[in-house]
Simulated assay, not measured.
Amino acid sequence: MSLEELVADIEHTYGEMGESAAVSLDRETRNELALLAAAYEPDELDELVRRGAHMLFQTAVETGNLDFHLRSAYDVTYDEYLSGMTYDEMAGGGGPPDRDDTRRYQF
């Protein structure tokens, strides 16, 4: 996999979701969501789900968990995704530049 494939997968999933996503909840999740709703008193339960997604994303980035999964699946990191290029591309595409050793120390 590659950076281009990651971008394509993200764009595809983003397009499929649209403005809302239907999510099925198990018993434990419903209980936790109900407790959070009682404590935070949001206008809509959707707000708690959005906060949960933001918190999961932030935690995954901060702990390196997102990078681990991205590297495993796409061989890129979140920083590479944000910049739009891999570390190899940032460094010039590979090894050190070719040098003309006969002129190396000439000024």
Rank of each mutant, 00 (worst) to 15 (best):
M55N: 12
H54R: 13
R103I: 03
T13G: 03
T29M: 00
G95P: 00
M1K: 15
G52N: 01
L3H: 00
S20E: 13
R27N: 12
A34Q: 14
L56W: 14
D26N: 10
R50H: 05
E41M: 09
E16D: 11
V49S: 03
D88G: 07
F107G: 14
L66K: 01
A8K: 13
A34W: 05
A91C: 08
S72Y: 09
G64S: 08
M1N: 15
H54K: 13
L33M: 07
L6M: 06
R51F: 08
S83L: 12
D9K: 08
A60Y: 01
E4I: 05
G95I: 04
L66I: 03
R71T: 09
E89C: 04
A37C: 09
R27P: 01
S83K: 04
Q58V: 11
L25N: 09
Q58G: 13
E89V: 04
Y105S: 04
D101S: 14
A21N: 06
E28F: 03
V61W: 11
E11L: 14
S72A: 14
D100H: 07
A39M: 07
Y87G: 02
F107L: 13
S72G: 04
Y78W: 14
E62A: 12
G84T: 03
M55R: 13
E89R: 06
E89D: 12
F68A: 15
F68Y: 08
Y14W: 15
D88N: 09
S83C: 08
G93Y: 15
G92V: 00
H54Q: 14
G93A: 08
E89L: 06
D98V: 08
P96R: 14
D88L: 09
R50I: 02
L6E: 01
T63F: 12
A39N: 09
R50T: 02
Y87L: 10
M85N: 13
T102P: 02
S24C: 07
D26C: 06
A60Q: 03
R50F: 03
L36C: 07
S20G: 13
E41L: 10
A22Y: 06
S20H: 13
R30T: 04
H12G: 12
L48W: 01
E16K: 11
D46I: 06
A73K: 15
R99F: 07
M55I: 11
L82R: 15
V61F: 13
Y87P: 00
S83Y: 03
D100T: 08
V23E: 04
L45H: 04
G18K: 08
P96I: 05
R30F: 11
G15K: 12
R103D: 06
E41P: 02
M90Q: 13
A91I: 08
